[in-house]
C-alpha cells in the first residue's frame, strides 16, 4: 500500500506528505503525494506516504525501529512569509526560532525532534516546502491556485532527491 504504513520499515527512502486536507493549503503535502502516485513510478526502495495528520506515529515508529530508512523527505506547506507558491527547502538547523512553531500545526515534529531523528539515527532529513496562500481557521477544502500550480515542480524536486539515494 502506498498510502499506508506497510513496508516502510524495509525502505531506504520514506517520503511523507503532511498536512490536513480540511484546511485549504495545509493539504499541500498530501496533494503532492497523490500527484506523485498518479504521475510517477518510484523505485522499489522508496515509499510514498500520505501521512495526513498521522505523521507523528510514523516518525515515532521510525525512530525506534531497528531498521531505519536512510532518508526521510518531508513535504509540508509552511508559512515563512514568502510569495505564495514559492518552493523552498528548510535546513533543520536554520529554522528561526519564531518559525519553529509552524511545524506543529498538524502534528509535525518540532525541529528539535527532527534534529533528534537526524543526529541519533543518522537519517538524512529533507524538508521540501511551499509557501501557502491561505490556511483558513475554519474547515475549507482545496488548495489555492498558486499552491496547486507548484505541485509539479515540487514533485520533480522530490524525484531528484529520491534519485540521489543509491538503490539497495
Amino acid at each position: 500500500m502506498a498510502n499506508g504504513f506497510s513496508g516502510y520499515e524495509s525502505k531506504t527512502v520514506v517520503v511523507l506528505g503532511i498536512g490536513n486536507v480540511l484546511f485549504g493549503d495545509d493539504g499541500f503535502g498530501p496533494e503532492v503525494i497523490e500527484f506523485l502516485q498518479e504521475k510517477y513510478t518510484v523505485p522499489e526502495n522508496v515509499v510514498l506516504i500520505n501521512a495526513g495528520c498521522s505523521a507523528r506515529s510514523i516518525l515515532f515508529d521510525i525512530l525506534l525501529s531497528e531498521k531505519k530508512p536512510e532518508k526521510i523527505i518531508i513535504i509540508d506547506a509552511f508559512d515563512i512569509g514568502l510569495k505564495p507558491g514559492k518552493i523552498f527547502e528548510i535546513n533543520i538547523d536554520e529554522i528561526p526560532e519564531n518559525k519553529i512553531d509552524d511545524f506543529s500545526m498538524h502534528q509535525i515534529p518540532t525541529s528539535n525532534l527532527l534534529k533528534e531523528l537526524r543526529d541519533a539515527s543518522k537519517i538524512e532529513i529533507k524538508i521540501i516546502s511551499c509557501q501557502p496562500e491561505n490556511i483558513p481557521e475554519t474547515v475549507s477544502m482545496g488548495l489555492s491556485g498558486k499552491i496547486s500550480n507548484a505541485i509539479p515542480a515540487v514533485c520533480r524536486l522530490v524525484m531528484k532527491e529520491i534519485k540521489k539515494q543509491p538503490v539497495k
Binding site: M1, N3, G4, F5, S6, E9, I49, N50, A51, G52, S54, S57, D61
Partner: peptide, 18 residues
C-alpha cells in the same frame, strides 16, 4: 506491535491511515 496493528488494518481494510 504497532507495525503489526497497522499491517493488520491494511490486510483487513486496504488502508490504515485514512
Amino acid at each position: 506491535n504497532r507495525h503489526l496493528g497497522a499491517r493488520m488494518l491494511e490486510i483487513l481494510t486496504g488502508k490504515s491511515i485514512h
